[in-house]
Simulated scan of single mutants.
Amino acid sequence: MDHISFIQNTLDLSTPFKERFWQLANGTQVIWHSRGVVEFIPHLDFDSHCAVVLSSGIHGNETSPIELLDTIIEDIQSGELSLSHPCLFIYGHPTATHQHTRFIDTNLNRLFSHHQIPNDSMLEMALANRLMKSVDAFFTKHNTKEKWHLDLHCAIRSSQHYTFAIHPHNHHYKRSESLLEFLSRSKIEACLFSEAPASTFSWYSAEYYGAHAATVELGKVSRMGENDLTQLSEFNEALRNMISCADYFEQESLDSTLIEYQVTRSIMKQSDHFTFDFPTDLANFTQFNENDLLATDEGIQYIAQPGGESVVFPNAKVENGHRACLLVQKIEKTKTQ
């Protein structure tokens, strides 16, 4: 069977989806499970110690990761890239992509708190249920020694770190050294250690399957076809090496340049009166000094803690009850050794 374009197939909402199965010339099995969810099982799957989930498009307007993964899928199907591990590729929210927006009814990346009660009036609830079930089935089928989930995003604002990752809090591990090794090799600039459980897609895989997981921010939002993927060339190369080289993590480690931050807290928006005390276009990781006013919400003032804090993902337009920003402090390397 001729290969099918992942992006074109997923975005063609006018055509009903049909599950497909075929085999590539090199023996790799391809299973198109549902719209935007495709699994590749290499011919030598029984030798694999690792299963990898790579997701993108959980926010519909974050298109560079979608295009990056599509180039990898194209090369797998053409035979140019041979896999050493089973991989599940996910393109999460094509409807939002069509409308050039992050979501339709609510933020999809706040709904992965195990299986939700169906809500037919909310598109993202049904999507979250379907995607969690896809991950469940994949990790149950490939119950390998190591599981991975990299959920690829891009930021809606400028950032003092062009690329960075969020290491989810979970009950399996405090620090995934394998994950940090990959982030360093792929030249991701910084990693944030989350301070509490979340309901993001990467947290779901870490919490329920012990996966080496992260939300990875790759540059800034642009429309499909307008992304400069050359800026992500080092990440692209490392990702391809990880899924194609069986001994990827046995290779000699390089000195890490990864900057680490601890999330000190999240500021939650409680009311329509919430406002930040800084410009709406403030860059991620902007530093505030101790006692600087950050935000107000119905008379409550949020000020920077001792040592100062940097702001990440500030967004005063989120729904009430949702996170308006993260606050972080840099971790001194000597404290983590």
Rank of each mutant, 00 (worst) to 15 (best):
F6T: 08
T10N: 04
L11G: 01
D12H: 01
D12M: 05
D12Y: 06
S14R: 08
K18D: 06
R20S: 11
F21C: 10
W22D: 11
L24S: 00
L24Q: 02
G27Y: 11
G27N: 04
I31D: 02
I31Y: 13
H33F: 03
S34D: 15
S34M: 12
V37L: 13
V38C: 07
E39V: 12
I41P: 03
S48G: 01
S48K: 01
V53F: 05
S55M: 10
G57M: 14
E62D: 04
S64N: 12
I66Q: 15
I66A: 06
L68W: 06
D75Y: 01
Q77V: 02
Q77M: 04
G79H: 00
G79D: 00
S84P: 07
H85D: 12
P86G: 09
I90G: 08
A96V: 03
T97R: 03
T97I: 01
Q99I: 04
H100M: 03
R102D: 05
N109F: 00
S113Q: 09
H115I: 06
H115L: 13
I117Y: 07
L123K: 11
M125D: 07
A126H: 14
L127G: 10
L127E: 10
N129Y: 05
A137N: 12
F138T: 02
H142G: 05
N143T: 02
T144H: 09
K145E: 15
W148L: 06
H153E: 01
H153C: 10
H153R: 04
C154D: 15
C154N: 15
C154I: 02
A155S: 15
R157S: 06
P168Y: 13
H169Q: 09
H171T: 05
L180S: 08
E181L: 07
E181A: 12
F182K: 10
K187Y: 03
A190V: 09
S194H: 13
S194Y: 13
W203S: 13
W203C: 06
Y204K: 11
Y208L: 15
A211M: 07
H212W: 03
V216P: 05
E217Q: 14
L218D: 03
K220A: 10
S222N: 10
S222R: 12
S222L: 12
M224P: 04
E226Q: 15
T230F: 00
Q231T: 13
F235Y: 15
E237C: 02
E237R: 14
A238W: 08
I243A: 07
S244K: 02
S244I: 05
C245L: 13
S253P: 00
D255K: 04
S256P: 00
I259H: 08
E260P: 00
Q262F: 03
Q262D: 14
V263T: 13
V263K: 10
T264V: 15
Q270E: 10
S271C: 07
F276Q: 11
F276D: 09
F276L: 11
D277R: 14
F278N: 08
T280D: 15
T280P: 06
D281Q: 12
L282G: 01
L282C: 07
F285M: 09
T286K: 07
T286L: 10
Q287D: 04
Q287T: 05
N291W: 06
A295D: 08
D297G: 08
E298L: 09
I300R: 14
I300L: 12
A304G: 15
Q305E: 12
G308K: 02
E309M: 03
S310C: 11
S310H: 04
F313A: 08
G321E: 08
A324T: 07
A324W: 03
V328K: 13
Q337T: 03
